[in-house]
Design a binder for these strands. Sequence first.
RNA 1: GGGGUUGUAGCUCAGAUGGUUAGAGUGCCUCGUUGACAUCGAGGAGGUCACAGAUUCGAGUUCUGUCAGCCCCACCA
Length: 881
Amino acid sequence: MSNISKTYEPQQFEEEIYAAWERDKNFHTTADAAGEPYCIVIPPPNVTGQLHMGHALDETLQDILIRWHRMKGDNTLWMPGTDHAGIATQAKVEEQLRGEGTNRYELGREEFLKRVWKWKETYGNRISYQLRTLGSSCDWERERFTMDAGCSAAVRKVFVSLYNEGLIYRGTRITNWCPKCNTALSDIEVEHEPEQGHLWHLRYPFKDGSGYVVVATTRPETMLGDTGVAVHPDDERYKHLVGKTLILPLVNREMPLFADSYVDKEFGTGAVKVTPAHDPNDYEMGLRHNLEQVKVISNEGKMIDAGKYTGLDRYECRKQIIADLEAGGYLVKVENHEHAVGHCHRCHTTIEPLISKQWFVKMETLAAPAIEAVKSGALQFVPGRFTKIYINWLENIRDWCISRQLWWGHQIPAWYCNDCGEMTVSEEDVHKCPHCHSKNLRREEDVLDTWFSSALWPFSTLGYPEETPELKKFYPTSVLVTGYDIIFFWVSRMVMMGLKFRGEVPFRKVFIHGLVRDELGRKMSKSLNNGVDPVEVIEKYGADSLRFMLVTGNTPGNDLRFYWSRVESARNFANKIWNASRFLLMNLEDFDPTFKPTPDDLELADRWIFQKLAYRIETVTDNLNRFELGEAARQLYELIWFNFCDYYIELAKTRLYGSDARAKATVRFVLATVLETVLRLLHPFMPFLTEIIRQKLPNVEGSIMLAKYPTRDELAELITDDDSIDNAADLIFNTVRTIRNLKSELGIDSRKKAAVVLKVTHEQFKEVLQENSSYLTTLAFAEPITFAEEKPAHAIGAVLEGVEIYLLLEGLIDTEKEIARLTKELDKVRKGAASTAGKLNNERFLSKAPAEVVQLERDKLVAAQEKISSLEQRIKQLENL
RNA sequence: GGGGUUGUAGCUCAGAUGGUUAGAGUGCCUCGUUGACAUCGAGGAGGUCACAGAUUCGAGUUCUGUCAGCCCCACCA
């Protein structure tokens, strides 16, 4: 047993343990296995991505829940898989092609897709492998991919069904367009950021030469597409001018001045130039007033059909337009103006609103049940505050643009007949036009937004569209664990699709966590290069340390900062467990597993540690139930380090090294029982460490991950309900602390023996102190200990409730120093007593506070008064010396 | 413009349903290598719980307002 290394070296065993778990199929379950179903579907990481700290947090939380439920005896399934991540993956392959001096258009769709699949094969396993190093107990046999056959079938079925119901439609609309990614985007893929820009005031003359109006714009280049100017109907400045015709400068287009209540009278000049083809609001106004849509900016962000400006980049054009307007006397003035500008979520290019033909999902009818689901409690957010955010978004939802002008993704199952012009949407590939029987068809080239397939993830991975046993057993899944950043992108859409196609919410709970930030609180990002690689952390400190660090010091829904020092602290905890276990194993060599102590064999320390253990089993379980994983972990930390290691193990040594065989057997039993139980409690948090240690324990078989999660019932025979044990332990440990404190103040080495005199003032404490005086020797190096009726003359002391403690001094004490010390103590106690007395003098407190609380205060006052008189006496005595 | 969230020890954070003298990690100071662990042990310093009111016998905890920071949503050109 002593072949265990002196320090914790996770690199020595983590990989091997994981391989054994996987080999033994410990992660695998089936629909017909015993137990209540418990299922989590993984938020699928980008198939070609790399593990980052955000994943590490997300997976750790999931794995804790999964391992806990598996140990509880639930039929537990963690569905793993990856996402094809349309734009992101395609962009990477296109970048590679650029390096080769070619592009996707040269390659053609088919060849290009081959390249992407190849890329996926090369990098697709990396992320899964990295998840394994974290200890994630996913059922890898069931690993899925959003573009595998099953998920693709689900996408087609859902798409066609929504189309047939009229919930998917194709239409020409103004949409967000990224000129760099060259695709349409949904509203939530646009990030609005304030930018310092300008407000140009332009003079637009009337056709009849009767003057002009001045409009204000932040985007002068769009004037080329202007087809009207709008004012507010109630604006007295313009009321009489409405209906007149204006001439667009530089272009000489005739256009109307019209009234629309959208216009804000207070802003700018109160007159808005209207560009229906390049601004969402203008687009709406254009529809209302039958304005022409003149497209002057191309998909690439260049000017088109724009006369001399044709071919210019939109920003280059802006400069020239301004110069030309100024030259023509049309520029009235320029103001600085901060405004929100939309940027592409992925590449950060400024979005260009463009009119194009796209596919949309009608959201209103889908959103209503998704709102109802949280209002009825069928779906719960943890923490609850995210409910409001979710509802607010759904209540104001607009139609979802789902078509993307990409190649990597689910190609929309729509076919156009080149002969009759009809469109056919179908689950099966269409080879013959159902309208005219022509075979001259072409398929819709657009693919679906990546989030469309993600929205189906909770049921597509379980077998949908087939009615598999897994789908029946595990849907609705139990909980979804994800960051607050994708509530709109993913969570809400899963809920809508789940309700629509399964009639039930996809998960009963959504456990939301925050973002992992760097030491300065900044978001970890590639551009800042401030990301910490979890793989590096695991290599240095082990997965258990990383997991423990991520789960502690953080509460649900809040961001947390990554600190190397916190990883070290977690590693130190692991090392502490490692060494405590090593110590136990060294003393358990001829352990008799059949020995069971009788109640008489157990002494105070034994009963105390069992009590603590039972209590923590309850509070840890309670916290797990409430998703307070950090609090649960903290409690385990305290139990293991402070209770078990600092106190119990130290106290065990006396009997362990003694000659009483029965006492030795008893203490070994306690040590082994507590350690084994604690390992099981801790296993969901630190799976590797707990597994390897438990395997070394005598009389323990099988993997810890399949062992039962501890319950209080397990300890039923070893614990009692009365609190006399805790009270006695408190008395002893407080005495220990006091002795240590006195020694420290006297400059006595903490490990050097010192004579202690105890004057017991509460008779009922005498027995406890006498019986357990050896604890004082063990923990505080107090020896010899004598009980006296009177305080010794040459000594310094302290007063506790029920006992006074004195340290005998070899030489004379420094009377003045001692008086000062005691006076300071006396002040403190008096202050406390005054506050307590104040409460007790308050009639209202006495009449309104619960009786227990009042009694507590009374007891407190009595104790304080005793302490005060003891201290006063002692001080007086010293003064008289 | 709406909504959310944070403000507790030098730093990072816990403190659910209001009730002893507000805790931990880390950092700092003093002391300690006789064996589980120096990735450790013992002791210590350090907090007007952002501010102001309100409710209550009692508020770090509930409510209102103020200040400061962060985030999300929103079509003011």
